[in-house]
Write a protein that binds this DNA or RNA. Structure first.
Lengths: 181, 181
DNA sequence: GGTCGCATGTAAACTGTTACATGATTTT
DNA sequence: AAAATCATGTAACAGTTTACATGCGACC
């Protein structure tokens, strides 16, 4: 089984919301899907061209707000079909890698206070991120986001909140566990 | 800043526990670090050779239990230094990708009952995984694992337990949220 | 005049992943 | 005799990531 490229689906998904240029997709992702999905420009531009060749998107040039021209991409009916097919299909677990846990796993090689300190740092960062998520949650709940999309946006933010809270609690427990040694 | 290859550190870490062959490292990872770190054989063999060239590990041939010969790799003092340096260094957040969330984010493109059903499936899988983690937790608590390593092994398992419980709770909340629509 | 944001892209290097090849020994 | 396990590896490709090049218009 060959790997399938997910960048194309991420792109089709974004374009299903509204037509965007590559640059706009990048900006959109960096605010909306930043926590769970990011793409590099070096992937976006060629992938959009590939999608256009397969008639899943179409583009036309426009005069940009500033600067010269921009390529506005729009999803086609065929593109929507492909997107929906992917959305329905079962997602198989992606290989999850956590470098922080990998280091902790070999913690017997370093001073225990160093490990405890690293967990404290991790907890502080998680706490900051939680505050950030909760702020976004409030904004989404009162905003001008289309009602149809709102619960799905909220769901992804709530995922971040749940998981980050769990990380904070785990940090607290681990600091106790390592201290009592 | 160029990317640094983490496979080498994962390998050094494993070899800091005991000397192993590439094949053994692979097996060790698939039981011990499976949840948060995996490597492919096609990476392990060449990386071990690279590490040997840099004198971070050394190897000698042995007659294997079954089959012909095997290459047993051992970490050197220099290798331990490099490992510890990495262990102490601050870990910067790795790009986290969650395809399940990405699909959910575009949920307005498909039937809401399909989304709810997918969350239910996700919850069932998480529940099964939680049971699995809890079983391992019990085993680690009573086992013949060196006492020095035990809290670190436990920590990574407890991470899995905390995060998986959070996922299960999130699923329950999301099914309610989407149903009330 | 310099910096910032908009906008499009390429080159190069590296990593991750699948698939395959080979062969010995032990178990069924 | 076949299947499973031990064991080592390579080839080929797809995907990821960094770095760089270019140019316009607006703002300070």
């Amino acid at each position: 089984m060959p790997r399938i490229n997910k960048t194309q689906f991420a792109l089709l998904g974004c374009l299903s919301i509204r037509p965007m240029s590559a640059y706009e997709v990048k900006k959109f992702m960096s605010v909306s899907t930043h926590y769970f999905w990011m793409e590099y420009e070096a992937q976006l531009y060629p992938t959009l061209k590939k999608l256009e060749k397969s008639h899943l998107v179409k583009s036309h040039e426009e005069t940009a707000e500033k600067g010269g021209v921009r390529n506005l991409y729009e999803i086609t009916d065929k593109g929507l079909d492909v997107l929906r097919e992917w959305l329905i299909k079962k997602t198989d677990k992606m290989a999850y890698r956590n470098e922080f846990l990998l280091k902790l796993f070999f913690g017997d090689q370093i001073d225990i206070d160093t490990s405890i300190h690293k967990i404290k740092e991790y907890q502080d960062e998680a706490t900051a991120q939680l505050t950030h998520f909760q702020q976004i949650e409030k904004e989404v709940s009162i905003n001008k986001i289309p009602k149809k999309r709102q619960p799905f946006i909220l769901a992804t933010i709530k995922y971040g909140i749940h998981l980050t809270k769990a990380e904070i609690a785990w940090c607290a427990e681990m600091m106790l566990l390592l201290r009592e040694k």
